[in-house]
Design a binder for these strands. Structure first.
Lengths: 101, 101
DNA sequence: GGTTTTGTTCGATCATTGTCGAACAAGGGT
DNA sequence: ACCCTTGTTCGACAATGATCGAACAAAACC
């Protein structure tokens, strides 16, 4: 089945924000912003692979990431340009890790 | 009882995003951004006053708004400067109403 | 003092969502 | 062919959250 990667303009703002409003997903997004394309398996943040797959699906369906198959792996990357264009400042504002949790 | 308005730096980013990731609250924030200070009662978006009070509490505890008493009313205002300073671009990116819902 | 206005809080309900283990699917290697 | 690796999907469960009506609180006004 195709991964269902919607056009960002078709995703409600609240869905984009909700996708970013989770600690695990925020760590994933930060990792992608720093490291570029990454295999799903490399994005381990203390949750099971089922949960990780769920989070990646949320990010994908929010229009924030793209996924492509590569062997048995799947490579995920941040749709930075598109997000920055539609929501200028959003990623920059959110990506910087802040001290107080 | 004091309204509990935390320092923005003490609020996790995910809480700020979660506060904005709701349609009703986003409408409230937009109204406040446009109209400045507003009474709670003027922020009617089709929900009961109990629900509205709940949403205003979420926004307040996310560090996004301040509330002050004025007679029997309570006036709410957006903490725009502080939010813009800590999360530059966030409100601008989110406040603009977009077509696709 | 009583009534009206304006919000908050409480309890309940219902939907959403984060989480996991287990089962499944697909590709690569041997 | 077999197995291993990598992810996804499927229930299930627990926690969170949005919603409401009703009860409560506080100030203003008569």
């Amino acid at each position: 089945m195709e991964p269902h990667e919607p056009d960002l303009t078709a995703v409600p703002v609240t869905s984009v924000l909700a996708a970013l409003a989770d600690d695990v997903r925020l760590q994933i997004v930060r990792a992608l912003a720093e490291g570029g394309e990454a295999a799903c398996g490399s994005l381990d943040f203390g949750v099971s692979k089922a949960t990780r797959s769920h989070h990646l699906k949320v990010l994908r369906e929010a229009g924030l990431t793209r996924t492509r198959a590569a062997g048995t792996s799947r490579l995920v990357r941040l749709r930075r340009d598109e997000v920055d264009k539609l929501y200028p400042g959003l990623l920059d504002a959110v990506l910087t890790p802040r001290s107080p949790a």
